[in-house]
Write a protein that binds this DNA or RNA. Structure first.
Lengths: 357, 357
DNA sequence: TTGAAAGCGCTAACAG
DNA sequence: CTGTTAGCGCTTTCAA
């Protein structure tokens, strides 16, 4: 049961003080090459690993960033994390990843933990339950940089990076209209969550700008966050419901890819032709959107880019500690990926071959 | 710019020592209720957060576990992480998640970092490049518990949790044979990686036990790890190649879901019927396996369970610090999920667990 | 070029 | 019931 070697251990062997060793390690200019070399050798031989915790206590910097995701097993968040990591690891930061599981109380607990661990910053997307933000305020009060991404609390003043959901929805719906749809249904998420409200607005405005009427019966609100299977089923049910009505839609814009896929499956089982009879578009451009047949047109949110941006906001704030506290809001323009579910001639080449029915 | 409040701050206000406050906080029996209450109030009022770093330095325990994944944006690893988190967070541990990006040098760097951060343990899956394990040995030498999962180095003696890849493959191939296949191709991963070697062995043995000949031309080895799109394409190409030969297979067992999906797309474009002319099974049971049409039969590895087990191995080792160093190896039995790609009556149910050994 | 000493925030053994 | 003291491993003035 070996003890870890410390600065003191190697100092003793060399008959110098820890300060000297410490300096040698940081390549301090006023340390003789001789001792530097000696130190270097012993470090190797004794397998010395500097103790970051001690350094952190000293400096007040842990070099750890806390990242809060509602759930880690969603491509969306995995990809954001990757984006964050890409930029911060180069700067020597580590990530502690925590999941709120979409629950307010877990979220609060996590924040407490993160603060105790003395993270240098927190990058978070709020849970679907969250409606008050007192514990997020706490982060700011403690002078810890807070960056919110995607699902941001409106009431809280801090750095944010979001995807322009209004524009994403607008693009998708306009595209459906271009393809000849005139009765477009919308699967909306819970409206108290801003991203879903924005997508709904984009949907509504697209209709208006194209002189199409809004039919409230075609707008179905449901919880689009959670277990994938459940959302698939929800999509199926909404679709069944719509197509049992007397005046079914000829297009569906879903705020969730999975609900859209449920719709595709249901329509196929009913032998309703996609996109000929109903054109469909989803949201998020999940990998499976390219796999389903027909390929699902979807709005890509550039999630990794979102992570990159969040990380950069963090770095910015770190480096401007003393400047005016101006928070930045970054908005990312989403891209519509057109596939066979909405277009007879899908523009994505890869899909062209694979989407034969 | 507020400073964070420390034990000393609240001690001063109360005109007691830090020890008293410290004890009050831990609900020490010999502290008067009066001071406990007073402390409690000040903690609230001054927004005190205990500094874990200081505590960690003191105790030598960081309460952080390092988790190394080859890549975080794969459902497989996301799910393992979730499994680990589920069990360790209850015990007060946090996770630092690091990605090796399948590169040896990054892997080595990550381990160094993790050791410096003084993690209490490391749970890792080795990168596809990894063939020597000296830096993993370093972890053990430093007396830090190491748990390897899924992709484990054979040469390194430590706790491991793996999926029984041999059995998974055996089940899948036996199933294909049951469905009437007699010429089954195999998309193998790189054989120097144990999981792929095992799956290959399972494939070979299943053939042998059913008195089917092995045709080397039907076994194609390629790198099945990496960007999803690339693996899809690889699957397509291998399929094209096989079906341009004079004696094409009537079944495909792929060690990757994505390569299998590439096969499905290609066969559909060639109007070759699945499963009638070719039955297909993949590996990992990625979500998209249930989305593609026809649904892809696949081997489910119970990834979250794998994470649970890895976490428990860690906890075990922590609690047995002084006992004999007996490492445990946990093997998880995979489950074959049968879908339409291999079965005319796709029950979407689990295997009829009869046709195994 | 190096040493001495103080301290980061908290804990715990020992002493009252 | 509470205070004193030392120390976790490292950094960093201030001296020499």
């Amino acid at each position: 049961m070996k003890k870890k070697t410390t600065l003191a251990d190697i100092a003793k062997k060399l008959d110098v003080t820890t300060s000297t060793v410490s300096r040698a390690l940081k390549n301090h200019p006023k340390i003789s090459d001789a001792t530097k070399k000696a130190v270097g050798e012993l470090v190797e031989k004794m397998n010395y690993q500097p103790n970051n915790i001690a350094a952190a206590l000293q400096s007040g910097k842990s070099n750890i960033i806390g990242v809060i995701v509602p759930t880690s097993d969603r491509q969306f968040f995995a990809s954001v994390i990757r984006g964050i990591e890409e930029v911060v690891r180069k700067k020597g930061y580590n990530l502690i990843i925590c999941q709120s599981d979409e629950q307010t109380n877990k979220e609060e607990k996590i924040i407490d933990t993160l603060l105790r661990v003395q993270v240098d910053g927190i990058i978070a997307s709020v849970s679907k339950e969250t409606t008050h933000y007192s514990y997020f305020e706490k982060i700011i009060q403690q002078n810890v940089p807070l960056i919110l991404y995607d699902r941001v609390g409106e009431k809280i003043n801090t750095n944010t990076v979001i995807s322009n959901d209004y524009r994403g929805a607008y693009k998708a719906v306009s595209h459906l209209i271009d393809q000849g749809c005139s009765r477009i249904a919308h699967f909306s998420g819970l409206k108290h969550i801003k991203i879903y409200q924005e997508r709904l607005n984009g949907y509504l405005d697209a209709l208006k700008h194209h002189q199409l009427p809004v039919d409230e019966n075609l707008i179905i609100e449901s919880d689009l966050i959670g277990d994938t299977e459940i959302i698939l089923d929800a999509g199926s049910e909404m679709t069944t419901h719509l197509f049992e009505s007397e005046n079914p839609p000829d297009g569906i814009f879903s705020s969730s890819d999975f609900a859209a896929m449920g719709a595709i499956q249901t329509l196929k089982s009913k032998s309703i032709l996609i996109p000929d009879e109903v054109a469909i578009a989803g949201y998020s451009n999940d990998f499976s959107a390219s796999i389903i047949d027909p390929g699902l047109t979807s709005v890509d949110q550039h999630t990794k880019n979102m992570g990159n941006n969040a990380a950069n906001l963090f770095l910015d704030q770190i480096n401007n500690k003393n400047e005016t506290n101006e928070y930045k809001q970054i908005e990312i323009e989403p891209t519509l990926i057109i596939r066979a579910s909405s277009s007879v001639k899908p523009s994505e080449k890869k899909e062209a071959s694979s989407s034969s029915f």
